[in-house]
Write a protein that binds this DNA or RNA. Sequence first.
DNA 1: CCGGTCACCTGAGTGC
DNA 2: TGCACTCAGGTGACCG
Length: 283
Amino acid sequence: MPELPEVQTIATDLDEILRGATIRDVAVSFDKIVATDIARFHRLVQGARIDSVKRLGKWIRLALTGCEGPAVMLAHLKMTGQFILGHWPKKDDAWPPHTRAAFRLTGLPSKGDTLFYKDIRKFGRLRAFDLMELDEFLTKLNLAPDPFEMEAADFHQRLSGKKSRLKPVLLDQQVVAGLGNIYVDEVLFAARLLPTVRANTLTRAESGRILKEARRILTASIAVRGSTTNNYQGLRGGGAFQSHHKVYGRAGEPCPVCGHPIEKTVLAGRGTHYCPHCQRSSR
DNA sequence: CCGGTCACCTGAGTGC
DNA sequence: TGCACTCAGGTGACCG
């Protein structure tokens, strides 16, 4: 579901609400959602204080202080994961629909005492680590910096090492973190480059344009709490950036720049939207 | 290294 | 109404 702006919105909200709270109870109702050893997950998380919540690419990172010292919970929402605040169910009450895990907290300002992790499609994953394990995991993940953290020269260098088309390269979280299917299409439209262009053929001006447009679009989206299509709900409702999408989800509609109908194809297995008139392979 | 396909899952929308 | 089919904001594994 979420890409950088949506994850940023969620992490910022969670940080504000959860910072300083303590996790009193943990319940996991779908075991596969926890991708590290589940008994250890409980040991690391139960009783821990939440020190901060931050975004890392499309990951959410909760810094914890538990009985065994510092720990970290990483969450990846994949397509349909959500964090929602609510109330710990009384004895026989059911969990809210699609609840996969729940964290009962003390020290919350209001709005309930429980953080629910919901996930319709069950693709999302929660992990808990001590700091050494985290280091090991992040090394394996090899996550690239996001567009705000990356210099233009570094970005150009990374693209110049890839023979593939721009679409799959920009989706690759080891090349640049945070972009997903919506924002890649939007960024390439703004940068006036076709998604089929080979990444290693770009000039510095072209790669610079991609990075600049990525920052501009992501910033604009964060300012309105991200894009909402189907399932995304932040802690305070959905975002509004979908109404600013120029090509994503607009196949057949006129291009906002030239009026030519927006086309949709499949590239790298993903629906890909573009204007064949405004977007070119070079120049 | 690259591209294509599938797997992981559920639900919404569409067309007959 | 019911059914079959397609598609969905992500990623990882597998194969040629």
